[in-house]
């Protein structure tokens, strides 16, 4: 304890001491929440000063275009991390949705053309996979790490089965239009991803479901005894995560115009890292949509800087790994009492 703090404690009543303690805790909490934001601003300032054209409108639009798919994925992952679970099936669901949507709209492999209905059907099936994951996790009482790994394996297999090894090219003109169209100079894909993110914000911050998610993450036993339907909430969280993964798969398919499961490969771990970078705790209960946005933006920005600076692509992953450890060290949620595992 600091000297002036001890001085204050001596001269005041117990009530005042308590008030003082709470106030200082709140202050610390505020610093913790804003740490990622401060780091993001610092990185942006340093990059804009040292790199030409970094803070140009063109590069900023480009940055938002690059983060469109990770942002959609991160929206769902935030919910899963908030309840303290993890979802490894995300890559599988994303790949499955990308492969399926390519087959359900006009394509080079079959004559099926369901149009918008195909997209809706894909999202429903993708979300269904999440419901199954959540249901098995809750009912069979298997750790989410294992059950989602197994479900990811299954759904990837089903995704490959749908096109039997040779991926289909999409020929539907709407996909071309979405990929190339811009509104107010910003690509339509970015707008779509931002609106899905906005939907996630609304659900997390303004519904009873969102509050229940926080409650379960903070203390599941307490949440259960206050009458929250924990099992139902958990299943909904996994369904939501699969929904966003499904949307991300469709967006990736729009971008590449080819449907194969490999569009989901290597998407999961960067997204989890970005969400943690924003200040979410893997143990659950801490984090939020704004933090997730900051984390994803920071991750994308670091990548963007490494590319602009012209780091040898062979070494990029290595440097990225080191930078992320440093960044997480600076921003992560921790208190004196925690022992991390």
């Amino acid at each position: 304890m600091k000297k002036n703090e001890i001085e204050y404690m001596k001269n005041h009543s117990v009530g005042a001491q308590f008030k003082y303690k709470i106030a200082s805790d709140v202050k610390k909490e505020k610093i913790r929440i804003y740490a990622p934001l401060i780091l993001l601003v610092c990185i942006t300032i340093v990059a804009s000063v040292t790199i030409d054209n970094f803070f140009s409108p063109k590069n900023i639009v480009n940055l938002f275009y690059q983060m469109s798919i990770p942002l959609v994925l991160a929206t769902g992952v935030t919910f899963v991390l908030l309840i303290g679970s993890i979802d490894l099936s995300l890559e599988g669901v994303m790949g499955f949705s990308g492969a399926l949507v390519a087959l359900l709209v006009a394509n080079t492999m079959n004559s099926v053309h369901l149009g918008w209905l195909g997209i809706v059907l894909t999202v429903i099936l993708g979300t269904g996979a999440g419901v199954i994951t959540g249901y098995l996790h809750v009912k069979l009482r298997i750790a989410s790490f294992i059950i989602s790994y197994a479900m990811g394996s299954i759904i990837t297999g089903i995704g490959v089965l749908t096109y039997k090894g040779t991926p289909a090219n999409v020929t539907w003109s709407v996909f071309d239009a979405i990929a190339s169209e811009s509104v107010f100079g910003v690509p339509l894909l970015t707008w779509i991803s931002l609106s899905i993110f906005g939907l996630g914000c609304l659900i997390l911050n303004y519904t009873a479901f969102g509050k229940a998610v926080y409650a379960i993450g903070n203390n599941e036993a307490a949440a259960r005894s206050t009458g929250i339907n924990v099992n139902k909430t958990k299943i909904m969280v996994f369904a939501l995560c699969a929904f966003t993964a499904s949307c991300a798969g469709i967006l990736a398919c729009v971008r590449l115009k080819i449907g194969q499961v490999s569009i989901g490969v290597n998407q999961l771990f960067p997204v989890i890292t970005s969400v943690v970078l924003g200040g979410a705790s893997l143990a659950g209960g801490k984090g939020g949509m704004l933090q997730t946005f900051i984390g994803v933006l920071m991750f994308t920005e670091l990548n963007n800087i490494l590319i602009i600076v012209g780091v040898d692509p062979n070494y990029r992953q290595l440097i990225q790994g080191i930078i992320i450890i440093v960044a997480v060290t600076l921003t992560i949620t921790r208190s004196r009492k925690t022992i991390t595992q």
Binding site: F269, I272, T273, V276, S281, L282, A283, Q317, L318, Q320, G321, I322, I324, I325, V328, T329, I332, R334, T338, I339, T340, Q341
Partner: peptide, 14 residues
């Protein structure tokens, strides 16, 4: 006090 998940994830890429 970093989570082992993140540390070993970064170690993986390195």
């Amino acid at each position: 006090k970093l989570p082992s998940f993140i540390v070993t994830l970064c170690a993986t890429s390195i």
